[in-house]
Amino acid sequence: MTYVILHALAPIFVIMLLGFFAGKAKMVDNNNVALLNIFVMDFALPAALFSATVQTPWAGILQQMPLIVVLVLAMWLIYAAIYFLCTRVFHKSPQDAAVLTLTVALPNYAALGLPILGSVLGDSPSTSLSVAVSIACGSVLLTPFCLLILEREKNRAATGGNGGSSLSMLPVLMWRSVKKPIVVGPLLGVILSAIGISMPEMLLAAIKPLGLAATAAALFLTGLILSARQLKINRTVIVATATKLIIQPLIAWALVVMFGLHGSVAVTAILMIALSAGFFGVVFGNRFGVQSPDAEAALLISSVLCIVTLPLFIALTAGM
Rank of each mutant, 00 (worst) to 15 (best):
A111S: 15
P57D: 13
C306Q: 10
M258K: 13
I5L: 14
C146M: 09
A81I: 05
P144R: 11
L121H: 11
L203Q: 03
G211I: 09
I314E: 07
T159R: 14
I78A: 13
V33E: 01
T215E: 08
F280I: 14
S130K: 10
L141M: 11
S292Y: 03
I5E: 02
A228L: 04
L305M: 12
L17M: 09
L271N: 07
T268P: 01
L312D: 02
P249Y: 09
A274H: 05
A132H: 07
M65E: 01
R176K: 15
A80N: 00
L231H: 08
V69M: 14
V54N: 08
D29I: 02
A218I: 03
L142H: 02
M65Y: 13
I5H: 01
M258L: 15
A297I: 06
Y83C: 03
V183R: 15
F39G: 02
V304M: 13
V256A: 09
G189W: 00
K244N: 08
T87I: 11
G19L: 11
V140F: 04
K208F: 06
A110C: 12
T103G: 09
L147R: 12
V239I: 13
I207W: 00
M16D: 02
T309D: 02
A98T: 03
F43I: 14
I197R: 10
F50R: 11
C137S: 12
S51R: 14
L100S: 07
P57G: 12
L121Y: 12
G285H: 03
M27F: 10
F84S: 13
L255Q: 01
G263Q: 08
L203H: 07
L170V: 09
T56W: 06
L219W: 01
V99W: 07
M320H: 08
V283H: 05
A10H: 06
K92R: 13
L18R: 06
L210C: 12
A269H: 05
A111Q: 11
P57V: 08
A298H: 04
F313L: 12
M199R: 05
N31R: 15
G118F: 10
N30V: 01
K232N: 07
A48F: 15
T268D: 06
G161T: 09
K180V: 02
A132D: 06
I61A: 02
S302K: 12
V237I: 09
L36C: 03
L250A: 13
E296W: 00
L305C: 13
V237N: 06
F284L: 14
L73Q: 07
A298F: 03
I246P: 02
T241S: 15
M1F: 05
A206R: 05
D294H: 06
T241L: 09
H262Q: 12
V131M: 07
D96I: 01
H262R: 14
L219Y: 04
I12K: 04
D29S: 01
M202H: 03
S119N: 15
V267H: 00
L62I: 08
A98P: 04
A48D: 01
